[in-house]
Amino acid sequence: KDKDLLKGLDQEQANEVIAVLQMHNIEANKIDSGKLGYSITVAEPDFTAAVYWIK
């Protein structure tokens, strides 16, 4: 199951987060929520590491 990592990002921010996570071998998903911006989700086992790397 995926957990929400970040919400309300613009496309550039979302792409930067995806890139950082991929560099650390964390699979992440970018979801277009329309006017609400983009959300990033990661698998539950990767959540703690993902939070660490996006600081």
Rank of each mutant, 00 (worst) to 15 (best):
D46Q: 06
A49M: 12
K7N: 11
Y38F: 13
L21Y: 00
W53T: 03
K3G: 04
F47H: 04
A14M: 04
A19C: 13
N25A: 07
E27K: 15
N29Y: 11
L5P: 02
L9V: 04
Y38W: 15
G37F: 05
A19F: 12
E44D: 07
K55Y: 11
Y52W: 07
K1Y: 10
K30E: 03
P45N: 14
L6S: 03
Q11F: 14
V17P: 00
I31S: 04
V17A: 07
I26N: 01
G37C: 09
G8Q: 04
A43F: 07
T41S: 08
E16A: 14
Y52L: 06
D46L: 08
P45M: 14
A19P: 00
N15M: 08
V51H: 08
G34Q: 04
F47E: 02
T41P: 00
V42Y: 02
L6N: 02
L21F: 02
E27T: 13
F47I: 04
S33A: 12
S39W: 10
T41D: 03
I26G: 01
G8E: 05
P45C: 13
I40P: 00
K7R: 12
A19M: 10
S33K: 15
L5D: 02
K3L: 11
G8L: 06
L21S: 00
W53R: 01
Y38V: 07
E16P: 01
Q13W: 07
V20T: 08
K3S: 05
A49E: 11
Q13E: 10
L5R: 02
L9D: 01
G37W: 05
A14R: 02
L6G: 02
T41E: 04
V17E: 00
W53Q: 01
M23N: 08
Y38S: 01
S39R: 12
W53I: 13
Y52V: 05
V42D: 01
K3V: 14
N25M: 07
K3F: 08
M23F: 11
I40A: 01
V17K: 01
V17I: 14
V20E: 06
S39D: 08
Y52Q: 11
Q11I: 13
I40C: 03
S33L: 15
H24G: 04
P45H: 15
E16M: 13
Q22I: 11
D2Y: 15
A28E: 00
I31Q: 05
S33E: 15
N25I: 05
K55W: 12
Y38R: 00
F47D: 00
M23H: 11
I26A: 00
S39G: 06
K7L: 09
E12W: 12
I40Q: 00
V42A: 01
K30S: 07
K1W: 09
K3T: 08
L36T: 09
A50L: 04
A50K: 02
I31G: 02
K55M: 13
I31L: 06
D32G: 10
N29D: 07
Q13M: 09
L6H: 02
E44P: 07
M23D: 07
T48I: 12
N15C: 12
G37S: 05
L36E: 12
H24R: 05
L9M: 04
Q13L: 08
L9T: 02
S33W: 15
P45L: 13
A14D: 02
L36Q: 10
D10I: 05
E27H: 15
N15S: 06
I40W: 02
D46I: 06
D10L: 07
K1S: 08
V51P: 00
L9F: 02
E16N: 12
K1I: 11
I26S: 01
K3N: 04
K3W: 09
Y38N: 02
A28T: 04
F47W: 13
I31H: 09
D2W: 15
V20G: 03
N29I: 12
Q11S: 12
E12I: 09
K30M: 14
Y38C: 06
L5A: 01
N25V: 03
E12Y: 09
K30I: 15
N15A: 10
E16V: 11
P45R: 15
D32I: 06
L9S: 02
I26V: 04
T41Q: 09
L5V: 09
K35M: 09
D2E: 11
I54D: 04
K55P: 06
Y38K: 00
I18A: 02
D32E: 07
V20I: 14
L36W: 13
A49W: 10
G8C: 13
S33M: 15
S39N: 08
L9R: 01
V17R: 00
A14S: 03
K7S: 12
L5K: 01
D2I: 14
A49Y: 07
D4G: 09
W53G: 00
L36I: 06
D46V: 07
I54Q: 02
K7C: 15
Q11W: 13
N25H: 10
